[in-house]
Amino acid sequence: MDIEISSYIVLGALLFGIGAIGFLVRRNFLIQLMSVELMLNSVNLLLVGFNRAHASSHDGQVFTFVVIAIAAAEAALGLALAIAYYRFKNSAETDLGDLLRH
């Protein structure tokens, strides 16, 4: 493994971590959704980076496209949910949802 690849890994892990922390500390639905998207994109970065090291096939790049497509579907569903949620709470703060607990 050359140095370039390990920097992909470090960058990917950093982005993933930022996304995860964002997801955990922010309470706004949309920002949490964006955090998840960031996590997915960090994976894309990793996949593309790894594909450089394993250039004999294009598994990683194919995987990346699949992830992009699914992330789009997820975002679409998430936005629809955000609208439905906003109608009840007049806010996108997720910790206002306390009907279901314990």
């Binding site: 997801f23 922010r26 949490q32 607990r101 314990h102």
Partner: peptide, 17 residues
């Protein structure tokens, strides 16, 4: 156990993390 299930998304996400 049920106290842990606070119903707040980021708290529950934290448990997963």
């Amino acid at each position: 156990v049920t106290r842990l299930q606070s119903g707040v998304v980021h708290a529950q996400g934290t448990l997963i993390a």
